[in-house]
């Protein structure tokens, strides 16, 4: 098993942290993972991507070349990375951020969901990784939770845990 995942969007959405947490969760599960990010000179607001490779065995070439899963969270990111995906790869977009995609893709309303259910868009990234873990069946829900709890401040535990639960629900729902 080797799965290459790319999360792209804009700075401030927490996608790089998300890519790190997803990789850490995979490692907790006993897998091998690498994580790498690309960003521009802008500290906030520029296009960013967080790349994750998860494998059962040693990962040689360290970064994602063409992802199996491409999560696009901004129009600019779509322009920049939208065409780089494996032939049988899956594109996931949030319709709130990305419009007018011609090729086959899955629309998941991450933004609208966290906003409605949690009255905050901050845990957006948590919903995404939990969604991916469930959707791809590569990372366990427990490990995701463990990785997240190790990293976040105590007063955000409740809201982030809720976001993880919603993400997992959506992952299950969108699987088929």
């Amino acid at each position: 098993m080797k799965l290459e995942i790319r999360l792209c969007g804009f700075g401030g959405q927490g996608l790089i942290l998300a890519s790190k947490l997803l990789s850490q969760a995979a490692i907790i599960d006993g897998k091998i993972a690498t994580q790498y990010q690309t960003y521009g000179a802008q500290v906030r607001g520029g296009t960013v991507k967080g790349d994750v490779v998860i494998s059962d065995k040693r990962i040689d070439h360290p970064t994602v070349i063409k992802p199996d899963m491409l999560v696009i969270m901004s129009q600019d990111a779509y322009k920049k990375y939208g065409n780089f995906v494996k032939d049988d790869g899956i594109i996931i977009t949030d319709p709130f951020y990305v419009k007018g995609i011609e090729r086959e893709h899955i629309e998941v309303p991450f933004y609208e969901t966290v906003k409605e259910e949690l009255h905050s868009t901050l845990p957006l990234n948590m919903m995404i990784i939990s969604f991916l873990a469930k959707y791809t069946n590569t990372v366990s829900e427990e490990s995701i939770k463990k990785a997240v709890l190790e990293k976040i401040p105590p007063h955000t535990v409740e809201i982030n845990t809720k976001a993880l639960e919603i993400g997992a629900e959506f992952g299950e729902k969108f699987k088929k």
Binding site: K20, S23, I27, I32, A33, T34, Q35, Y36, Q37, I59, P62, T63
Partner: peptide, 9 residues
């Protein structure tokens, strides 16, 4: 840059 900025096990 990749070896410096990437993370892994």
């Amino acid at each position: 840059e990749v070896i410096g900025h990437m993370s892994e096990n």
